[in-house]
């Protein structure tokens, strides 16, 4: 059976690449160096798990999904994926990517989800946007591993409940655990803490609800799904910022990890939003194994 070697849940900040790579050093924001070093430290948490393929969870930002036919949950099943759209290249300076797909795990995942009562849509021509490419840039910038992309609707209400997102994560975990393969799989999902877009609290010095962000990180870091399900609703998220329902994909990632304490937790308070970097190691913490190896040598 496949090994789930790491689960990563992170915010996605589309300006990271522009702020740290495309802007000349003398013009960079004061936090650029710290931001970059936190991202590089986070990347190490994935590298240490030695993944061979990636299950990626994200959300389309009105690039390929529109109200004429908006899927609630969708999986890509393709041999390869193109990435990033014209308007996110225009606005964020996003790079383009061509990522290899893993059709076998996509097919196994799709069937497994249907069997568990998650009636997914499926695409054979899915183009990937920055919700998946941001974490590729931060955690696997070479884009050298095959992916299985899973898209959720966190954007066009009404949305499924927080519990449904958690249960979907649990189902994805079971399916990865049952995948008949000797591969090491990592699951990486991106979403948001409190966030406002196109409203009166956007682009402030901090995110729209910094206190809620600290609470939300603590819930996730402790694997405290009970508190999340008691406190997080569509209304509560919307009160913290109109785009805060992006938190649902972080709840989904906790579902994949299970109700466990995270092995790695970091964050960075930036203008407009707080960034979060979190990793679980369902198969044991490989960084501790490294330490043991070094100590023995």
């Amino acid at each position: 059976m496949a090994t789930l070697s790491a689960v990563l849940a992170t915010t996605h900040h589309p300006f990271f690449y522009k702020a740290t790579e495309l802007t000349p050093p003398e013009e960079q924001m004061p936090q650029a160096a710290e931001w970059k070093s936190k991202v590089e430290a986070y990347r190490e948490t994935l590298t240490a798990a030695e993944p061979e393929l990636l299950v990626m969870v994200g959300s389309d930002h009105f690039h390929q999904f529109f109200y004429d036919n908006y899927p609630t949950f969708l999986i890509g099943k393709q041999a390869r994926y193109d990435a990033t759209f014209y308007n996110e290249i225009r606005e964020f300076g996003m790079p383009t990517y061509e990522l290899e797909g893993h059709e076998e795990l996509s097919g196994f995942m799709f069937q497994g989800l249907l069997d568990r009562g998650f009636d997914f849509s499926v695409s054979s021509e899915l183009k990937i946007d920055h919700s998946i490419i941001c974490p590729i840039i931060t955690t696997r910038p070479d884009g050298d591993l095959p992916i299985v992309p899973i898209y959720t609707n966190i954007f066009a209400p009404p949305l499924p409940s927080p519990k449904r997102f958690y249960d979907l994560g649990r189902a994805i975990r079971e399916i990865i655990d049952e995948f008949p393969s000797d591969k090491r799989v990592a699951a990486i999902g991106s979403g948001h803490l409190s966030l406002e877009l196109g409203g009166p609290r956007m682009f402030e010095e901090h995110g729209p609800d910094p206190e809620w962000d600290v609470q939300a990180i603590e819930w996730l870091a402790n694997g405290d799904i009970e508190s999340i399900l008691e406190n997080v609703t569509w209304e509560s998220m919307s009160t913290s910022g109109n785009a805060t329902p992006g938190f649902l994909d972080l709840i989904l990632m906790l579902g994949i990890a299970g109700p466990e304490k995270a092995a790695y937790v970091d964050d960075l308070d930036l203008y407009h939003t707080r960034e979060m970097y979190m990793t679980w190691y369902p198969d044991g913490d490989p960084r501790k194994a490294e330490h043991r190896k070094e100590a023995a040598a």
């Binding site: 930002h61 009105f62 308007n87 225009r90 606005e91 954007f155 066009a156 877009l197 196109g198 409203g199 956007m202 109109n242 785009a243």
Partner: peptide, 12 residues
């Protein structure tokens, strides 16, 4: 109107 569509086009 959806806040993301409106914000993105007028930033553009």
């Amino acid at each position: 109107a959806h806040y993301f569509l409106t914000l993105t086009i007028f930033i553009g």
